Simulated scan of single mutants.
Amino acid sequence: MASGFVRLRGADPAWLVAAGILTVACWLPVCLLRQGTVLEPLPAGRLFASQVAAGSANHLLPAGLGAHVVTLRFLRSCGISAPRACAALALYSLAQPIGRYALLIALMAASPDASAPGALLPAERGVLALFLLVTVGAVGAALLWCVRPLRAFVQDLLSTALTDARALHTRPARALALWCGAVGFPALQAAVMVAVARALQLPVPALDVALAYLTATVVAGIVPTPGGIGSVEAALLPGALVLASLVRRKVI
């Protein structure tokens, strides 16, 4: 920690400012992505504030559940029914990793000589992640098979989500917001890491930094932990303040 702070004091302030600006900008594609999951126009200011607050709540529960809870309450406050709000969350959960994987594959294809994700992680971790993924899937399938009310709920949710997804893709503006947000969010996150690496004069190519970061986020998604364990964002404190303010004003 001490050596890290010493290194930080010698960081390039211009690159640190750029990293801060990019961090704030990360909320913009998230707002686009959220808007792209519903047909109704959402109030831009309240949407942005809700996503700042969601970033704080996301550190309390694993797998993005905190952000989903905040967003669900926000969508309900905008007059969207509970089934369609849940369907919007399902579509978000599908589009977001697709955008991240697509960006990772595109960067790997753009520079085959860059460090491959497989070289960044031991094979044992990949096997463990696959095992956990299969285990969670098997448990989920067993629950759906044994618990009839849960199975009916999931079926209704998927039916609503598919109906809304088809309707959204008939409107170019919504489809553009959905997929631009899905790709733009991880791209800006990777850009933040590159800016910090440049500020600290790390002798690592920018593409390698981006690939390493995107690979780490993919693994974190497979093995979820509260807040990504160790990747606490600089926006945690302001996000918590915004979350409390929105709850008091009954926006969420």
Rank of each mutant, 00 (worst) to 15 (best):
A2Q: 15
F5V: 15
V6G: 13
R7Y: 10
R9A: 15
A11V: 15
W15Y: 05
L16P: 06
I21Q: 04
T23C: 12
V24K: 04
A25H: 03
C31H: 02
Q35Y: 01
L39N: 08
L42H: 04
L42M: 01
G45K: 13
V52Y: 03
A53E: 00
L60G: 01
P62F: 09
V70D: 07
I80F: 01
P83Q: 07
A87T: 08
A88P: 00
L89M: 06
Y92W: 14
S93L: 12
R100M: 13
R100P: 09
M108N: 12
A109M: 12
D113Y: 14
S115M: 15
L121M: 12
R125P: 09
V134K: 06
A142H: 05
L144H: 02
R148A: 04
R151Q: 10
F153P: 08
A165L: 06
A173S: 12
G181E: 05
V183I: 10
P186C: 10
A190S: 12
A191R: 10
V192H: 00
M193N: 08
V194R: 07
V194E: 05
A197V: 07
R198H: 09
A199R: 07
A210R: 03
L211H: 05
Y213A: 09
V218E: 10
G221L: 07
I222K: 08
V223K: 07
V223R: 08
I229W: 03
I229P: 02
G230Q: 08
V232Y: 11
E233C: 05
A240H: 10
A240M: 11
L243K: 04
L243P: 00
S245G: 12
L246N: 05
R249A: 04
R249S: 10
I252C: 11
I252T: 09
